[in-house]
């Protein structure tokens, strides 16, 4: 028989078992990491160390990204606005797109590329060299010691980095507006400021908070499930960056959709 020649066809449930198990493990890890925020012991030093690595360490790349995206946005939008004779409203477009969308998403992508990979490779290396087992053997919960500080640090620093990216992006847009579009400074800043409502600021801060949870937890999850030596560390790092990046876009769409559906956008 054909079926026996090529073996039994795979059961659909067997195919689904692995991804479902992975999702379950991810949610279990997330639950434990978040629960540990309210449980002792607290590793304050580790939180500060991670804040420095994730926040201060990402400042340059986030500022650069923000600056160029603001400048490009001003140039691109000025062409579209010129057809309506509204070049003077460049500041409005730049501030709205940066605060609502580009600032949070681009900052999250930069941090995902830089830190989800860093977290996954660091924890992955610890896993394959039995340091995670040693930690458990020596009386420390690895989730409490390694995951929770990274989640807290990323959740605190990503919104701050987003604010910096937004501000530097507005400066990028301002330079283009003043030197290439010949818009007076006062007009640019006034239109940029007046365009923003509290809803935009709230959306612009909620998104990075959600993205921070996603990036840190995905990085930790892939790091802690690393197997297969140094090759496995490389694989976990790649998977962490890809998954975190895709999830950032998915959550961005979901949050924006909820915001729009609420009629507050």
């Amino acid at each position: 028989m054909v079926a026996s020649e090529f073996g039994d066809p795979p059961n659909l449930l067997d195919l689904l078992k692995e991804p479902i198990l992975a999702v379950q493990e991810f949610f279990l890890l997330s639950g434990r990491a978040l629960r540990n925020i309210f449980r002792t012991p607290h590793y304050g030093d580790d939180i500060i160390l991670q804040m420095d690595g994730i926040g201060v360490g990402s400042m340059q790349i986030v500022a650069l990204t923000g600056f160029f995206s603001g400048a490009v946005m001003a140039l691109q939008m000025s062409r579209a606005l010129a057809s309506y004779g509204q070049v003077g409203r460049t500041g409005t477009i730049v501030s709205l797109t940066l605060v609502r969308e580009l600032g949070p998403v681009l900052t999250a992508l930069m941090v995902a590329g830089r830190n989800a990979s860093g977290i996954a490779s660091e924890l992955g290396s610890m896993k394959v060299t039995e340091q995670i087992d040693a930690m458990r053997a020596l009386g420390t919960d690895p989730i409490q010691k390694l995951v929770t500080p990274r989640v807290i640090a990323t959740s605190f620093m990503l919104p701050l980095l987003t604010v910096i990216a937004d501000f530097v992006g507005l400066i990028g847009g301002w330079l283009i507006a003043v030197f290439f579009l010949f818009i007076p400074s006062k007009q640019y800043w006034t239109t940029a400021w007046r365009a923003l409502e509290w809803n935009d600021v709230a959306q612009g801060l909620l998104k990075p908070l959600i993205f921070a949870l996603v990036i840190s937890l995905v990085g930790c999850y892939y790091g802690l499930r690393t197997t297969g030596g140094t090759q496995g560390v490389g694989r976990s790092t790649t998977q962490a960056v890809v998954s975190a990046t895709v999830l950032v876009f998915i959550f961005d769409l979901m949050i924006t959709k909820i915001w729009v559906a609420q009629g507050v956008s």
Binding site: T129, E130, Q131, D133, A134, M135
Partner: peptide
């Protein structure tokens, strides 16, 4: 416990 690869941090 002494781990195989020492497992020092």
């Amino acid at each position: 416990m002494l781990f195989q690869e020492s497992a020092l941090f």
